[in-house]
Design a protein around this nucleic acid. Structure first.
Lengths: 198, 198, 198, 198
DNA sequence: CATGAATGAGTTTTCATTCAT
DNA sequence: AATGAATGAAAACTCATTCAT
């Protein structure tokens, strides 16, 4: 049975990263099922064999791609939350998060779709679930810290998060001719302000 | 090259329907890429060969499954809209739609995921886009017919639709321990009432 | 998951037989591990794919090859036992069996080696074990039927069987220059006659 | 091409021995074809690369394993023969050899099978052939030295050796419910005593 | 029209052997 | 000498699609 190397050396880590990066790009371009390991290897500039030195199987690459995606996609939101001074300017948090989410979504659109399409795989689904919980938890803590005392804060924050994701998704993917997306942005901001009584 | 017959005979139509139905069930269970044509044929009680008498290729089955899904999932919403007497009771429309959406989603959850995961295929994406436009268009017409005169009605209705979908999805799929989904429902209803000034 | 066809039609049975036969020949020639499924398919004049229509995996071919071998190799011994009239001429049974065993062994030498080398696989081992029991059982029954009443008949018969196998193997495989195999035959016959008091 | 060094240094010899020992154990456990060189290296506590500093290829390890096995398995028999005083007690030699063979077989059962399964390789086959000749030769010499004068002594001794091997194999590997192996031992001893007129 | 056996290119995965360090 | 990462050819197995009956 193949033993997956957990690379200690810098070179090896870099190579593993190259494979994950290549997987990231290929999955984003063509989806998980339309990408084969040979393509990933080629895109990473390595042999097919070594892929199995770093990853147990193809799904294992997916998991690492997912982790990278999560880091890419959610860290900026976490950073924004951490750095935001709610005491001064609570009202501008929501549009800031919204705009940041759109930016992130635009940068990660393809892979986002590719990964979300795999929630039938329990590994993938649970990562996304955990992530949503983390976002809600952090946001709730931030608000409570800022003195916000609202009934059902968890549910409100969670819904705000869902709204932000939905909005970003719509804005990046759908281009309905009859929609003015800047108007939609204002509508969403208005609703969320209403939600938090800002 | 196989010539796809557009079957005139009742028997043939029934057979085609059985295949689509089988595809529907298998895709819902295991996803498009993890279902093979032999399985579909077997589930439909037909030979593998005849599948290609009715469909050009595997993707072609998917398209028909998608159409069925759309009929299943959206017709009830359309019917609700058509039958609703807005002049009498505008406030109850939103919770009615919300609850109907959850019901539909619960019935079609697996296939919904399976199909949404395929929006990388242009065929699939454009069908979903068209559908959203249709919902927004009908809803907007309904509201205007009932005398609603709101700025940016299209955007508001579209966002309402997105919210309904998101809510249904959350309710059916995610089971975060820290969320009371009845509370979330009331929050969403409140926001949408606010949106339409009800 | 692939479903192994259990062929009903004559043509299919013939094809399955061709594959097993090809497996038989290839395993005999080059051993199990040095034969790949593509080679078997080619030798059988079929595609690689259809092999997996008839067999679950490569090991599954081996099992069928084993069954054929057993039929080839043991049926003549069983037939000999069944037809032999012990009441008339008990002494000649042993040399008859010995000579028959050598003939069979010569005909099946390569595959015999190839198969015996796989007794680490439980499937293979248990088939051989069962077969030995069958031989001992039949032989013992035959002797008792002929009025032989010896202490420890089972052990004696079993040992006789082992001796026959060993002798046949030596005769067919080993060609030690210092051994006169006809002399060795007489020695073995003598011992076995002694064993059964003939 | 790798140049196989014949290591002069003690350390190198020890390392080579460790590899062979690891090969011995792995082959015994899982067979030659189911053991890969990385496993052997790991079990030996060396790098995969250095294996090819000591051995030309994987088969080369097998040859050395075979030599070790032979030393383990046959030296005790040779020692027994050398030390046995035939003039005093000829009758007890046979059971002594038999019991020793069983003991050896029990200790080396797995590797014995693993190696015997490779007699398709000419290297392996010829080693086993040579070994059998050596055993027969030594035994015959011993007997002649003790004044035994029997017709066809070579064939008798060879057959005795075969019998001993078969008995040990049966006793160690096969566990037929209907066989009492102590009874079988007595039967074999009886036959061999008969063979040599003891 | 219908069957289901057959095809064969394509996919994942393994592993003996080499090579840069 | 030693390491262990890297190679890439080869193996097992899958499956959309075709075709003989």
């Amino acid at each position: 049975m193949a033993v997956t190397r957990e690379p200690q050396q810098k070179r090896a880590i870099e190579k593993k990263n190259k494979i994950v990066q290549a997987g990231y790009e290929m999955f984003a371009q063509k989806g998980y099922y339309n990408t084969n390991t040979a393509e990933i290897a080629k895109a990473a500039g390595v042999s097919t064999g070594i892929v199995y030195g770093y990853f147990h199987d193809k799904k294992d690459i997916l998991i690492d791609v997912l982790d990278i995606y999560i880091a890419h996609a959610y860290q900026p939101i976490f950073d924004l939350l951490d750095s935001f001074d709610l005491s001064k300017d609570m009202a501008s948090l929501i549009p800031a998060v919204l705009d940041e989410a759109v930016k992130i979504h635009a940068d990660n659109a393809a892979i986002h779709e590719a990964l979300h399409s795999l929630t039938q795989h329990k590994d993938v689904e649970s990562k996304f679930m955990a992530l949503e919980e983390e976002v809600t938890r952090r946001m709730t803590a931030k608000l409570e810290e800022a003195g916000v005392r609202l009934a059902h804060l968890n549910e409100k924050v969670h819904w705000a998060m869902v709204s932000v994701q939905s909005y970003a998704h719509e804005r990046v993917f759908d281009h309905h001719a009859y929609i003015d997306y800047d108007v939609m942005r204002d509508i969403v901001v208005g609703l969320l302000h209403n939600l938090f009584g800002v």
